[in-house]
């Protein structure tokens, strides 16, 4: 069973990997590339813990085949901070206690970042619906939603 050779870009770096056809992009990230920040909560696209950006689109990496990544550009949680400098959403999540166990946090951050890039000034309802595919069982979402709104407001004020 020959593996597929895939050339892609992850967090700005050129990456090549070999994968079996059955492997999802999430499997590849976690098991082949040791990028374990993307989490598997359901493997069916229902929880959003594996959220990544593929060619500037927010997707569940559990619903993308590894081979499909050929030629694409992928962003994961590992690329969100700029070196030592956290992204404003990361910083705000910390300040606002917007995480408890933290397993859903990478997915929320990736999804929230993609929202603010498309819609820099969302309403609370828009934030809630955009993030409806990211399940959190700890926080009741309150502090997550507030954090996204606050980052948007601060970016507007800046």
């Amino acid at each position: 069973m020959a593996k597929n050779h895939v050339t892609t870009t992850i967090n700005g770096e050129p990456v090549e990997f070999l994968c079996e056809t059955q492997q999802t992009l999430l499997d590849v990230l976690r098991d082949e590339l040791q990028l374990t920040g993307s989490k598997e909560g359901c493997a069916s696209g229902d929880c959003g813990a594996c959220s990544v950006m593929v060619d500037d689109r927010l997707v569940c990496s559990c619903l993308v085949m590894g081979v499909e990544a050929e030629g694409s550009s992928i962003e994961t949680i590992e690329g969100m901070a700029d070196g030592e400098n956290l992204h404003p959403l990361q910083q705000k999540f910390l300040e606002n206690a917007a995480l408890q166990c933290g397993i859903c946090t990478p997915g929320f951050l990736i999804a929230a970042k993609s929202l603010l890039e498309k819609n820099p000034d969302p309403t609370e309802t828009e934030v809630r619906y955009w993030l409806a595919g990211n399940l959190c069982r700890c926080t009741g979402y309150d502090k997550i939603i507030r954090s996204v709104l606050e980052v948007a407001a601060e970016a507007k004020g800046a």
Binding site: G37, E78, M80, L86, P106
Partner: peptide
């Protein structure tokens, strides 16, 4: 333990 959890480094 927050920074590790917002950067994906925390090991679950």
């Amino acid at each position: 333990d927050g920074v590790d959890k917002v950067t994906g480094r925390a090991a679950f």
